Amino acid sequence: MSGTSVDGVDGVLSYFSESGRPQILSKASEQIPVSLRQELLALNTPGDNELHRSALAANAISDLYARVVFNLLEQAGLKPVDIAAIGAHGQTVRHRPELGYTSQLLAPARLAELSGIAVIADFRSRDVAAGGQGAPLVPAFHRAVFGTDTPLVILNLGGIANVTLLRPDRPVIGFDTGPANMLLDLWCQRHTGKLYDADGKWAASAPSHPKLLKHLIESEPWFALPPPKSTGRDLFNPQWLDSRLSGFESVEPAHTQATLLALTVQSIVAALGQQDLVDVPIYACGGGARNLELMQRLAQAWEGPVSTTDTLGIGTQDMEALAFAWLAWAHLNKNAGNLPEVTGANGFRILGACWPA
């Protein structure tokens, strides 16, 4: 899995069965090289010679995926012949379900050739073809693993924040709530040169700006939309941020960073509040779960307990990769991978396509 933060590739090697939780046999991560990261970010917006550049970027990200696969096999002491399939998400560069498409860069044939393992990829397009958002897809995995006996919220803090609501005798609800690390990382890189605000220390060094926070929320109609809904860099991008900061040039950069962190927290809490949730426990995963200031602010704003998915037995960096391994397992077993009540699709669909080894 490589997400909208475009910082790295996370992989897990796991064993699935019809009953019981998946067993993680090994895990590995690779940082995305700066040059590739810059190109992937550039491909989120129209540019020169996009088809050629996209093909080369897809090859490069596939090579990185292959490196993660080799690391996983080496750690587990297994060979390609021992593996049923690779579930590969690819790198999202455009997500426009309202126009009938979503685009994740990957070269699945290349990955199958390099690894000697069958590759299941292109998970989102079938749900979009069926009238859905194509996202989020992980709620089906959350339901399968955690069930619905106990009310809980799984919160993924990636580039975009998304939630899964599991409650007894209620349909699963899942949707994006807005930006998480995406704008925080952008602002931090622009003003400090660092890839991200480690532990949220920069954001913690200054108070948020109430008027700016109010403006960021009220000026964006997307926040008020009911689910199903999803978003990404097509909306929350540098142009979006710069346009909203017009008129607030006097706000110090550290105050803006604190305000962007407050935006992440407030948009999550407001979105959950719209679902009549008050004190249900939240379990966070993704890179943002390691942002201490973000987690502390969330715990202060939410009436229920806030912790990480580590307490549920799945590491914060493993959840998304494990979900797409599960989606590959579902594909091989001809099981639906989407939840129509989450994505808005016209029905259950088997997701992904297979490139044999």
Score class of each variant (00 low, 15 high):
Ala180Gly: 06
Ala330Asn: 04
Val145Ser: 08
Gly159Gln: 04
Leu277Tyr: 03
Arg53Ser: 04
His209Glu: 13
Leu41Ile: 11
Phe123Ile: 13
Gly337Leu: 07
Thr316Cys: 10
Thr231Gln: 02
Arg21Ser: 11
Pro108Ser: 11
Asp169Ala: 12
Phe16Ile: 09
Val34Gly: 10
Gly288His: 06
Asp199Phe: 07
His95Trp: 02
Ser208Asn: 10
Ala203Arg: 09
Lys334Asp: 03
Gly287Ala: 03
Arg349Cys: 07
Ser29Leu: 13
Val128Ala: 06
Leu245Asn: 03
Leu56Val: 11
Met1Ile: 04
Trp302Pro: 11
Ile217Pro: 00
Leu294Gly: 04
Gly20Phe: 02
Arg110Ile: 07
Ala345Asp: 07
Lys201Ser: 08
Lys27Cys: 10
Arg349Gln: 09
Thr150Trp: 02
Pro22Trp: 03
Pro238Ser: 04
Phe223Asn: 07
Val93Thr: 08
Ile268Val: 12
Thr343Glu: 06
Leu73Tyr: 03
Arg349Ala: 03
Ile160Gln: 10
Ser29Gln: 15
Thr148Phe: 02
Ala144His: 05
Leu166Ile: 00
Ala258Phe: 01
Leu332Arg: 15
Ala88Phe: 01
Ala66Ser: 12
Ala88Gly: 09
Ile83Leu: 12
Pro356Met: 04
Thr148Val: 12
Gln317Met: 10
Leu166Lys: 03
Ala55Trp: 11
His331Glu: 08
Gly315Ala: 15
Leu73Met: 10
Arg67Thr: 14
Ala58Gly: 14
Ile117Arg: 05
Phe16Glu: 04
Ser26Asp: 15
Leu332Pro: 08
Val265Ile: 12
Phe16Asp: 09
Leu51Cys: 06
Arg244Pro: 00
Leu216Glu: 01
Leu40Trp: 10
Asp127Gln: 10
Ala85Asp: 12
Val269Trp: 03
Ala161Asn: 05
Ala28Phe: 15
Pro253Asp: 05
Cys354Val: 10
Ala109Val: 11
Asn49Met: 05
Gln266Ser: 14
Ala328Ile: 09
Glu220Pro: 00
Leu213Thr: 04
Leu263Gly: 00
Ala60Lys: 14
Arg190Trp: 09
Ala262Gln: 11
Thr177Val: 13
Ser17Glu: 06
Gly77Asp: 12
Ala129His: 12
Asn44Thr: 12
Ala325Val: 04
